[in-house]
């Protein structure tokens, strides 16, 4: 099977200061990769680099990020716009912040579909409702008619997953998608992302500081520390027998429930 996305010896710098060094990994269709590390380890920058979202000061200074043969950091903004959303979707930590606060959820879902070439409003609404239903929302009409602030934080995050899946992207980038949520809601969002993979075969790169989330979702994982790879491999084997002292420290620091 061909690789969907591959990072090859990627360096990222902000204002000339290198914060990510020599990161390589690749992902096949339908695979889930977890990237863990503490705050400041550079894990979010790694995701942002794929969509040229590093801002004015950030730059991929070495290496390539290939998506289906395209070198992402070299794409023009117009080329990136075509890929962003339809091929690669993204969810952030605070979904509430990624929705427009003064427009109804339905209109915003509508906008996504229109921007990518489906002008028929009724068809679009039906599509959005269908997807919401498939992702387990009991009353999709109510969601569509709500403003973002009328939904709880957990609900917003669940809708954000649906919004990201609306165009059926092949790859989903998720930056701390459950970190702001309660455990019970966290579980729902995880199940929703796993469902996205099951229905659409979407591959997911998941950035989090929560080892539990990685354990519950990811096939493979990469541990980052101060911008460099400490360890990478299959989630199950790293969790069972971490080889680096840093990973061991991370795992032992994680509180575990004795049931």
């Amino acid at each position: 099977m061909a690789e969907l996305i591959s990072y090859e010896q990627v360096d990222i710098s902000y204002k000339g200061q290198r914060i990510v060094h020599n990161i390589s990994f690749s992902l096949h269709e339908g695979e889930i990769m977890g990237i863990v590390g503490e705050s400041g380890s550079g894990k979010s920058s790694l995701l942002r680099a794929a969509l040229n979202m590093l801002g004015r000061d950030g730059l991929v200074t070495r290496g390539d990020i290939y998506y289906k043969g395209l070198d992402l950091p070299d794409l023009s903004p117009a080329e990136m716009q075509k890929i962003c959303g339809s091929e690669i979707g993204m969810i952030f930590q605070h979904a509430g912040g990624s929705f427009c606060p003064i427009r109804r959820v339905g209109d915003q879902l509508q906008e996504i579909l229109e921007a990518h070439g489906s002008p028929d409003q009724q068809e679009n609404e039906q599509l959005a409702c269908e997807l919401l239903t498939r992702f387990g929302f009991d009353n999709p009409k109510r969601i569509i008619e709500s403003y973002p602030f009328e939904l709880s934080g957990g609900m917003q995050q669940r809708v954000a997953v649906v919004a990201a899946m609306l165009l059926r992207p092949k790859l989903l980038l998720a930056d701390e998608p459950t970190s702001a949520l309660d455990v019970t809601v966290q579980k729902q969002v995880i199940e929703e992302m796993l469902l996205a993979r099951e229905i659409f075969g979407t591959a997911i790169i998941l950035v989090t500081h929560n080892m539990g989330v990685v354990q519950a979702m990811a096939d493979k994982m990469l541990v980052m520390h101060q911008g460099e790879t400490v360890e990478q491999g299959l989630t199950a084997s790293i969790m069972k027998a971490p080889s680096s002292p840093y990973t061991k420290r991370l795992l032992s620091a994680m509180p575990k429930l004795r049931r």
Partner: peptide
């Protein structure tokens, strides 16, 4: 129970 079951 629900709270505990949700812990990963």
């Amino acid at each position: 129970k629900k709270l505990i079951d949700s812990v990963l």
